[in-house]
Simulated assay, not measured.
Amino acid sequence: MDIGQFIKGMPKVELHAHLNGSLSTKTLIELGKLEYGESNNEFQRICESFQQKQEFTLEECFKKFPIAHALTKTKDGLRRALLSVIRDFALDNVVYLELRTTPKTTTKMSKTEYLETVFETIRLASSMYPDICVKLLPSIDRSKGIEFAKDTVHLVLKALKTHADLIKGIDLSGNPASGSFNDYTKILSEARNNNLKLALHCAEIDNDGETYEMLQFGMDRCGHGTYMSSQNLNIAKEKQIPIECCLTSNVKCGTVKSYQEHHFKNLYSSKHPVVLCTDDSGVFDTTLSEEFIIAQKTFDLKKKDLEVLSLRAVDVSFASPLEKEVMKTKICKYFYD
């Protein structure tokens, strides 16, 4: 078995994946046909443009987001989309998935209905795809403002009464240039005080002052960590804050010039807790297997490194102790049987 085949068969842990961004082009086309029918000329034109290309510009990649949002505005559409995403991760031998989505009001659903549909679908998926364990990190979209954030967190805290087994934390994401992080510290503290973990997009853009504020406030995991000064990186290392590295996302977005220059190399070589993730696997046309393959080729990783990365992802996940034990058993069995 070559290393690529080995990686594809490897039990993997995905800790940074956004629902709408994880809808593959193939899935968007499948869902679009169900939603709009074969005869919708505009949708057919969009589908054909996706099918004809192997590579997309960043602008074209992001054209997938409005389509994904349109396809998840109804309960049925959201259910189909979520099941498709879970199916695709399961097919990639992902055994544990922490999925992020912003509870939203659409023309067909309230925020409460949106969130309840997600819970129902994750529970349905557990019987359809029993080899993958799915948890939820509801997202605060900072581009929507602090009142939207407060409403989201209070909705999530209410849902904890019946869905504590599925809700593992809060994600802070959205346009990193929107607003000030200090606007969100009170509501994030409320979430943390109610035993929710914090997975914050941090140092996603070059904003050293805000990165410092975020690191001082504290988080359970850092999303991206791309633009960290030596001072801020030292703080992250002192606090042992795990960093979620999304290689293809960063390279295609241009926040990192190349795979060879990705900060993953420095983090991993310094033994800092770092994990490989997809971010938006559908938008950027990747899989978690592909991210591991890229890292293996680019940084000359050995099988022992792949094992270390896999077990580290388990350690820094928000899974329960029993769930972590199950995952570690699967990973060790794969590497040593």
Rank of each mutant, 00 (worst) to 15 (best):
C61L: 07
C61R: 10
C61S: 10
C61H: 08
C61G: 10
C61T: 08
C61P: 04
F62R: 02
F62D: 01
F62S: 03
F62K: 03
F62P: 02
K63Y: 08
K63W: 07
K63E: 13
K63G: 11
K63C: 12
K64N: 08
K64C: 07
K64E: 04
K64H: 10
K64L: 12
F65Q: 06
F65C: 09
P66I: 05
P66F: 05
P66A: 11
P66Y: 05
P66D: 09
I67Y: 03
I67H: 01
I67F: 05
I67M: 11
I67L: 14
A68L: 11
A68M: 09
A68G: 12
A68Y: 04
A68W: 04
A68R: 04
H69P: 03
H69I: 08
H69E: 07
H69Y: 08
H69T: 08
A70S: 11
A70T: 05
A70K: 05
A70G: 09
L71P: 00
L71E: 00
L71F: 02
L71I: 02
L71D: 00
L71M: 05
T72P: 01
T72S: 07
T72I: 01
T72Y: 03
T72M: 04
T72Q: 02
T72H: 02
T72W: 01
T72A: 04
K73H: 11
K73Q: 12
K73E: 12
T74P: 09
K75V: 07
K75M: 11
K75Q: 11
K75E: 12
K75G: 11
D76C: 15
D76S: 15
D76N: 15
D76K: 14
D76Q: 14
D76T: 15
G77I: 01
G77V: 02
G77S: 06
G77Y: 00
L78D: 00
L78Q: 01
L78G: 00
L78C: 03
R79F: 08
R79S: 13
R79D: 05
R79W: 07
R80Y: 15
R80G: 13
R80L: 15
R80E: 15
R80M: 15
R80W: 15
R80A: 15
A81E: 02
A81S: 12
A81V: 03
A81H: 03
A81L: 05
L82I: 10
L82M: 14
L82T: 03
L82Q: 03
L83T: 14
L83H: 13
L83A: 15
L83D: 14
L83I: 15
L83F: 12
S84H: 06
S84I: 04
S84Y: 04
S84L: 04
S84A: 12
V85A: 01
V85H: 00
I86P: 02
I86G: 03
I86R: 03
I86L: 07
R87Y: 14
R87M: 12
R87E: 14
R87C: 12
D88K: 06
D88G: 10
D88A: 10
D88W: 06
D88V: 06
D88E: 14
D88H: 10
D88C: 09
D88M: 08
F89Y: 14
F89C: 12
F89R: 06
F89N: 08
F89K: 09
A90N: 13
A90I: 09
A90C: 13
A90S: 14
A90H: 10
A90P: 09
A90L: 10
L91K: 15
L91V: 14
L91H: 13
